[in-house]
């Protein structure tokens, strides 16, 4: 049979409607790559601040204790976060325009709520730990809560994002067991994994 039957096109349209209304397809893979690069640059600066001249692969036996340094690190993290979010908004709205989709639609709102809930809870949790002087758990907690956010949001995104979420959680738990490698795990989770997944998503969905 050359043309597809009405029944086949009915089945196809079911799938299209399910995906189009529940998934946010405009997220740009390229913005993931940029976020990963900013994270690596940020991690390199943090390394110069707290670990240099020891090798970046060496295990730190003492965690940062100076409040002054913590404030500088928080500032650095905020800059990385703002640059990353800026790139995501910029490239995503560009992609949405190209796809003729609206950036701020239902699926975008769902995505944001599902992603933000665990991350927001995690962010406050981390700030409370910082205020109480538990500096060593920041990197593992960032990774674990970010991973939970991704898994929570993956029904509204590409399915592959769930595996990125699982990877972040595993890295976070490893990092909790080996706190001296915190910066290294953080760089892998937020830098390298973002670049790898960003490239994969870009090749699969951005064109």
């Amino acid at each position: 049979m050359s043309s597809e039957s009405k029944f086949e096109s009915d089945i196809a349209s079911i799938r299209t409607m399910m995906e189009r209304t529940s998934k946010f397809i405009s997220l740009s893979g390229l913005s993931g790559v940029l976020a990963g690069i900013y994270a690596l640059i940020g991690a390199a600066i943090a390394y110069l601040m707290i670990q240099y001249p020891n090798s970046p692969l060496s295990y730190r036996t003492d965690s940062v204790q100076s409040f002054d340094v913590i404030v500088k690190l928080l500032f650095l993290a905020a800059v990385v976060l703002i640059l990353s979010l800026g790139s995501v908004f910029w490239l995503t709205s560009r992609k949405a325009k190209r796809l003729g989709a609206s950036v701020w639609d239902r699926s975008a709102r769902l995505l944001l709520i599902n992603l933000a809930t665990p991350i927001f809870a995690g962010g406050i949790f981390i700030l409370i730990l910082l205020a109480n002087g538990h500096y060593g758990v920041v990197a593992p907690a960032c990774l674990v809560f970010y991973g939970l956010g991704l898994i929570n949001a993956s029904p509204n995104l590409y399915d592959e994002i769930r595996y990125l979420g699982y990877s972040e959680i595993v890295l976070g738990l490893l990092s909790a067991a080996l706190p001296g490698y915190g910066l290294l795990f953080w760089s892998i989770g937020f830098g390298i994994l973002h670049i790898v997944y960003g490239v994969l998503m870009h090749r699969k969905y951005d064109r």
């Binding site: 009915d10 079911i14 399910m18 209304t21 239902r106």
Partner: peptide, 21 residues
């Protein structure tokens, strides 16, 4: 009717959906 089937497909994956969407 394809349109009715599509409406139900949307409501299967979304808890609710409004008229204009």
């Amino acid at each position: 009717h394809s349109v009715r089937l599509q409406i139900l497909s949307i409501l299967i994956v979304n808890d609710f959906f409004d008229f204009s969407s």
